[in-house]
């Protein structure tokens, strides 16, 4: 157990009727980080969040929240958590303000503080002046209220399951701005398959695929790690010949070409740095530029997850 971890998963395994949703997952979420939990649908993201919030239990392994076992988390631990499920359910007969007051009262928040927070959160959710009962809300409105209710206790750990999935572009921007503003003060752990959201606000990410964590690192480190395996080279001539030759080079695993610019995915960077210029020279072409490629989280995600499908 890392001393500064808000969330720690140790060999966490969950099996549903013979189907393994999580397979010995190890994960550590540093306190104060905005942690993106990426993965395709069915990867096990929601199951992880359900275990962390005590809605279900692991088959084996452990999940800790602020050092306490999540499966037997006391009210004291839950008082520090804010949670938004993937599809939040509300009491149709309440208004947004009533629901926020009710949610706050479950935490034992005093009336004055609750008055202030309710007003601020209703504003943040863009629901000021909306008197409709929750039964008449759209999916996006419910999602925004769901985020607001997760913040009512000013949580130390905010767990969000696909928080932007039902939002329009403006709503998404607002939510991402809000998440970014919490950085350093609140640990945010949010699951998503929208990679641009992660790229925009997360400082650390983990990629989950079919119940396995296939990568976990700070975003910059992950990009540097995978960026080093991309080489962009611009040649003076005979780019088609160069492409054919590089495809046969053992240290190069993939080649794409656009005019005289070739983007190479390499499996051995040191060897490629020698083999690539040699191959270009062998067809009588020159090098205009040769540099490490820029990778997006999407490239990394596709490489990590897509390659196994």
């Amino acid at each position: 157990m890392t001393a500064s971890s808000a969330v720690e998963l140790v060999s966490l395994t969950k099996v549903y009727g013979g189907v393994t949703a999580l397979d010995a997952v190890d994960l550590s979420v540093p306190e104060g980080s905005v942690f993106g939990f990426m993965g395709p649908n069915g990867a096990g993201k929601t199951t992880t969040l359900r275990i962390l919030t005590g809605l279900t239990w692991p088959t084996s392994g452990s999940a800790y929240v602020f050092g306490a076992d999540a499966t037997s988390a006391t009210s004291t631990v839950r008082a520090r958590i804010g949670f938004l499920p993937d599809v939040p359910g509300f009491y149709d007969w309440m208004t947004a303000e009533e629901f926020l007051r009710f949610a706050g009262s479950l935490f034992g928040i005093d009336r004055r503080t609750l008055d202030e927070r309710t007003g601020a959160l209703v504003d943040m959710a863009g629901l000021s002046g909306v008197t409709t009962r929750l039964g008449g809300y759209s999916r996006g409105m419910k999602q925004r209220l769901g985020i607001a209710q997760a913040l009512v206790n000013a949580p130390a750990l905010l767990l969000l399951d696909e928080p932007t999935s039902a939002l329009d572009p403006l709503g998404r921007k607002d939510v991402l701005d809000m998440i970014a503003s919490l950085s350093g003060r609140t640990t945010v752990f949010f699951s998503t398959h929208i990679l641009s959201d992660v790229e925009r606000v997360c400082d650390t990410v983990a990629v989950l695929d079919r119940g396995h964590v296939v990568a976990q690192a700070p975003v910059g480190e992950l990009k540097a790690r995978y960026g080093a395996q991309k080489i962009v080279v611009e040649v003076t001539q005979a780019s088609e010949q160069v492409e054919r030759l590089l495809r046969r080079t053992p240290s190069v695993s993939a080649v794409t070409r656009e005019n005289h610019t070739l983007t190479l995915t390499v499996n051995d960077v040191d060897e490629a740095r020698i083999a690539v210029p040699a191959a270009i020279a062998s067809v009588g072409a020159g090098i205009v530029r040769m540099e490490s490629g820029e990778v997006s989280l999407e490239d990394i995600f596709v490489e990590l997850v897509g390659s196994e499908r």
Binding site: T53, R78, P88, F90, A103
Partner: peptide, 14 residues
């Protein structure tokens, strides 16, 4: 079924 139990039982309500 409605998901309301999920919201309230992840708060300090046993």
């Amino acid at each position: 079924k409605k998901g309301t139990a999920t919201l309230v039982l992840t708060k300090p309500l046993s």
